[in-house]
């Protein structure tokens, strides 16, 4: 045993083995099974090979395309909101403005939503956006001189509610990522820049942004994945998977509806495989375009 642990050749493999085993058991095997199941019709205790029938049905399925559109739309809008806003907040926290104690409190309170359960948050947001004219958002609407709005009945207003949850929940997390990136930038850069007469804005654009590029790449990557695989927020907001006209249906929601609610596991597996392909295609092309792979190779 001792020999093995001290062996330069074998020890590294031994150390990463637990990770590899978990990866294989909980990830690779289920993934492989999904591929297999996506070519089958699965019933209780019987599975029949049906080739690519599930994919063919998927291709012609209007609801699937609607779900994909909903997921993509949500992903793009969360990126539009959840990169610039946290970036600005992080810059603010990282600046000299305000006392350290207030900033510490601010950071902590921004992060709390990420620790709360989506289930609880979803229910609370559902009540906030309820149809009744005494619900919070309708009181706000009333104060601003319009409404009452039937928030969760309309496509656009329903999307506003979903984005509100995303914003509330992830702003703090993204701010923390950016802040960590910013604090790793040596202060000499800023000193040199200010001696040369660069304004704060120019410093931000020419020093901060290029230096936290890896962080931005990382945040965008996980946001794309998070946005496309969003399910629970919509499930809780609409009190189930059936939103009016499927306006809140996401790809994962559709997978869940087909596989769990309608017991069509083969078809649901096909949805999962397609989602995997879409996410990989977007993320890999983004990572290639942002030069992440090149840097590692160099």
């Amino acid at each position: 045993m001792k020999q093995l642990l001290y062996s330069k050749r074998l020890a590294p493999y031994l150390f990463i083995l637990p990770f590899l085993v978990t990866l294989a058991v909980f990830w690779i095997v289920p993934l492989g099974r999904s591929f297999v199941m996506s070519t089958q019709e699965v019933l209780y205790g019987q599975a029949t090979f049906i080739g690519l029938d599930n994919y063919e049905r998927l291709w012609r399925d209007r609801i699937f395309w609607q779900a994909l559109y909903n997921s993509l739309r949500y992903t793009v809008l969360t990126l539009v909101l959840l990169i610039p806003i946290p970036l600005a907040l992080a810059a603010l926290i990282n600046s000299n403005i305000g006392s350290a104690r207030i900033k510490a409190f601010f950071k902590a309170s921004m992060f709390v939503p990420a620790l709360t359960s989506v289930v609880v948050a979803g229910i609370v947001f559902r009540l906030i956006f309820a149809e009744s004219d005494v619900a919070i958002m309708n009181q706000v609407a009333d104060f601003l001189g319009f409404g009452p709005v039937r928030w969760l009945r309309g496509d656009a207003t329903g999307l506003v509610a979903l984005l509100a949850i995303a914003l509330w929940r992830w702003t703090g997390v993204n701010t923390m990522y950016f802040l960590a990136g910013m604090q790793a930038i040596p202060t000499e850069y800023y000193e040199a820049a200010s001696i040369d007469g660069a304004s704060k804005v120019r410093q931000f654009i020419h020093i901060t942004i290029p230096n936290i590029r890896p962080t931005i790449v990382y945040v965008v990557t996980i946001s794309v994945y998070g946005g496309l695989s969003m399910f629970l927020e919509s499930f809780m907001l609409y009190a189930g998977n059936n939103s009016p006209n499927n306006q809140g249906l996401t790809v994962v929601g559709y997978l869940y509806r087909k596989g769990i609610e309608e017991n069509d596991l083969g078809f649901a597996s096909a949805v999962g495989v397609v989602l995997l392909a879409v996410i990989m295609a977007i993320n890999i092309s983004y990572l290639v375009a942002s030069g992440t792979f090149k840097k590692e190779a160099a």
């Binding site: 019933l43 209780y44 205790g45 019987q46 609610e261 309608e262 017991n263």
Partner: peptide, 10 residues
Amino acid sequence: ANFVKGEHPP
């Protein structure tokens, strides 16, 4: 109907 699909309902 979901629970009596196929030849071997559970």
